[in-house]
């Protein structure tokens, strides 16, 4: 349905997006995962025809979006990262305006606005000014503004940044509903691994402007199929212990976390005894030790050596 071909964007000699190839099938929910500055927003801006790529193309049903931007604009709903609304207007007025620019009018427009408000759970607050809303409510209206014309493709750029867990959960449920019940194709960008894991069938992992891995969640996790993670929680940080474990050839990767360590080790390796002995040598008190199955976060760590939110 939608694909990018060697998409590239260069700003002042630096490639913000470098030869990105991705595709979305109709009705799919695809995640674009990567840390801040990975090039996710630039990629979706090029897909949405907001900025022109330096090279490459975006194709919708085989047609170049660069040459025919209106083709994608008709079927695309975009939820920007920022709250792109008019705070001095009510939620109803905001949605009505965004519906009107897509050609909706009269009774059909009012009906559609009410449907969207119902979907977002904001029917009761529709006559309140957006500036009086909480962050989570603003985020919901921000999504609603992209849904009025019932788009076939919904692109969401980190739609849950800076909101409370309850609103976040509501938004994720709404996106899942749109994808599963309405058959909307979703491209969801985030640096929250758990959101992408919860919502998306397939995932593209981006870093430094490039897609470094892609596939279904299971496919990606299978990158680490020969490995497992040991999470060691301690009373404080012990730099000497870290150094010793890093030097151990049996441990593939040692990552410092808050008051603890994450060790990537070959699956089935019996290293727990070794870890306890080393901790004792450095006077470290281990409060908890867990052997984890790999997550997308671990995959990202494995691929880049960095955490998603570094």
């Amino acid at each position: 349905m939608l694909e990018t071909e060697e998409l590239r964007k260069v700003y002042k000699g630096t490639a913000a997006v470098d030869s990105v190839n991705l595709f979305l099938e109709k009705g799919e929910s695809v995640g674009l995962l990567g840390p801040n500055g990975a090039g996710k927003s630039t990629t979706i801006s090029m897909i949405a025809s907001l900025i022109a790529p330096s090279a490459g193309d975006v194709r919708l049903n085989g047609k170049s979006v660069l040459k025919h931007p209106n083709e994608i604009r008709k079927v695309l709903g975009i939820v920007p990262q920022e709250i792109a609304l008019y705070p001095e207007l009510t939620a109803f007025e905001n949605l009505k305006f965004f519906g009107r620019i897509y050609g909706l009018k009269g009774e059909a427009l009012s009906r559609r606005v009410q449907e969207v408000l119902k979907l977002l759970g904001l029917e009761d607050r529709q006559k309140d000014l957006v500036k009086t809303y909480s962050g989570g409510m603003k985020r919901r209206i921000n999504i609603g503004a992209a849904l009025l014309h019932q788009p076939e493709i919904l692109i969401m750029d980190e739609p849950t940044v800076g909101i409370d867990p309850q609103s976040r959960s509501y938004i994720l449920d709404t996106v899942r509903k749109l994808n599963e019940e309405k058959g909307m194709t979703v491209l969801y960008t985030s640096h929250y691994m758990e959101e992408v894991e919860r919502l998306c069938d397939r995932v593209y992992i981006m870093d430094h402007g490039k897609v470094i891995a892609s596939g279904t969640k299971d496919e990606l996790k299978s990158i680490l199929s020969g490995e497992e993670a040991i999470l060691v929680e301690m009373d404080r940080d012990y730099p000497g212990l870290v150094k010793e474990l890093e030097a151990d050839e049996a441990i593939l990767q040692t990552i410092e976390i808050d008051k603890g360590l994450k060790l990537i080790v070959p699956k089935g390796s019996r290293l727990l005894g070794k870890i306890f002995q080393a901790a004792e040598r450095h006077g470290a008190q281990i409060s908890n030790i867990t052997v984890q199955v790999p997550t997308l976060e671990d995959v990202f760590l494995h691929l880049t050596g960095r955490k998603l939110r570094d």
Partner: peptide, 13 residues
């Protein structure tokens, strides 16, 4: 600045 302009750009306007 607020991003509503981009919203209008990706509309059929």
């Amino acid at each position: 600045r607020t991003g509503t302009w981009d919203r209008l750009i990706v509309s059929p306007l």
